[in-house]
Amino acid sequence: MTLLVLACLAQVTLLTVAAWALPVLARPTLPFGVRVPAGRVADPAITARRLRYSRTVVTLGVLAALGSAPAVVLAGTPDVLTTIAALLCAADIALYAAAHRAIRAAKRHGDWYAGTRQAVTADTTWRTHPVRPPWPLLIPSLTLLAGTTAIGLTRYSSLPDTLATLRGLGIDTHHRVATTPGTAFAPVLSQTAITILVPVLVAALIRARPETDAEHPANSARRYRIYLRGIATLLLAGAACADLTLLLLALQQWNILTPSPLTTAVTWAPMAAIAAALLIFGVRVGEAGHRLPALPGESGSGYVQRDDDPYWHLAGTIYINRHDPAILVHQRLGSRWTLNLGNPVAWTVLAVFASLALLQLLGIIDLPPTS
């Protein structure tokens, strides 16, 4: 029970810190997902809303932490963790959406773009001199996949009739499933999916529309290149970390390692390391590289980035622009990319994933399970 309470408190802390950090790590010209001119980033309406949001998020986190311990004790099951996390996430999302609406209203009423010259910029060297991902970082993932497969093939014939279930942060020895190629090699299938999909994702991000600023075109293009190269490196390294975690989970499922709290900690240490690396990178470099310093000679253009708020919806998370040929665009919330739902190709991609999910739901196909 003590471990369950500690897990719940850790979960509340992580969610609160993540929600608090969203506006802190965001680009100054995109407070709460609203595009504003650089001259307005310190407007009282923005600073007041930031302060109010931060205080309320921290207050909710403290209340959730105080209430979670009694809730866990009364419930006595891990299911309460999911409920508390869902309620806290919903509250934080509501706060963020309220801040987004408030700043957008202040921008509209104050006519913040009056007297500015709006423009967009394009880096013509992006196609001729693209960012080169560090593809050699795929070697550890491929090695781990091959090693896990070899161990599984060697071990399969001596496995018992039932296997412990892969569940969440480790192995559930109390719930067992029949030994079949699908259950025994589930970690290998997950490794295969990660090893294939992550490089595909990196290649897609490299070809996505660059996030440049018309006010500082040269500076923003250079910073975005550094940012994108770092993201590609972390994604490929993260694939290796995920494959290592899956290997350790497989060794426990195949009765080579004994499940224990120490084993679980070691198993998830690679994922914790890559999560810490992503956090440090985000703090030092910033979204789209906006925290990187400018170089001498990278002066402003006299323009401001075009106000493209009409194309962004749900607090800057959904992008719909039929006149933009880009398929992937950098999201306004966090270091992520999103599909341009104004492009027919994006709907084709979504249709493929929806079809796969439907086929799995109907039992026609069996996708690799997630750990």
Rank of each mutant, 00 (worst) to 15 (best):
V12G: 06
V72M: 06
A64L: 05
A275D: 09
T16P: 12
Y113S: 03
H109S: 14
T47P: 06
T370H: 13
A272L: 14
R322I: 04
A214Q: 04
W347Y: 08
A272P: 01
L247N: 02
H100N: 14
Q191W: 04
P310R: 02
T338W: 06
V177T: 11
I103F: 04
L81W: 15
H216L: 13
L358H: 03
P23E: 03
L201Y: 15
R223M: 02
A90D: 10
S335A: 15
G115D: 15
T47L: 15
L87Q: 09
S335R: 12
T338V: 12
R291Q: 08
L14V: 14
A86N: 13
L339G: 07
A106I: 02
P296S: 04
G238T: 05
T183M: 08
A119N: 08
P217M: 02
T317H: 00
V120T: 14
A26F: 01
G316Q: 04
P133M: 10
Y224E: 08
D111R: 15
V12T: 11
A122K: 07
N321F: 00
I171P: 05
W126T: 11
P261L: 06
L248T: 08
A354L: 13
V80K: 08
V200R: 07
R52V: 03
G238K: 02
T245F: 03
I93T: 15
L137D: 05
A90K: 02
Y319Q: 00
S220D: 02
S141V: 07
S371G: 10
L87K: 03
L341F: 15
L15S: 12
D308K: 02
S299Q: 08
A357G: 09
S141N: 10
S68Q: 01
V24I: 12
H129V: 10
T192K: 08
V62K: 03
A48F: 04
Q11F: 09
Q331K: 15
A346N: 10
E287T: 14
R209P: 04
R127E: 01
A265E: 01
A86C: 07
A98Q: 12
T29N: 09
A86Y: 06
I256Q: 09
T317C: 01
T13Q: 11
I196S: 10
R176C: 08
T192I: 10
G238H: 09
R50F: 06
S371E: 06
Q331M: 12
G282A: 07
P296T: 05
D79V: 13
P199R: 06
D213S: 13
V36I: 13
L15F: 13
R229A: 11
V80I: 15
A91P: 08
V131A: 04
H175R: 09
A186I: 02
P130H: 09
T245I: 03
G282P: 00
W268F: 15
V177C: 04
A26G: 05
A42V: 05
P368R: 11
A240Q: 01
T56N: 14
A354W: 06
M271P: 02
L333E: 00
Y96N: 00
A122S: 13
L14I: 14
L166K: 11
L25K: 04
L251R: 09
L328Y: 04
L9I: 13
G168Q: 06
P259V: 00
T148Y: 05
Y319P: 00
D366V: 07
I84P: 07
P261C: 02
L246W: 07
A346K: 12
R155Q: 15
C241H: 10
V120N: 11
H313P: 05
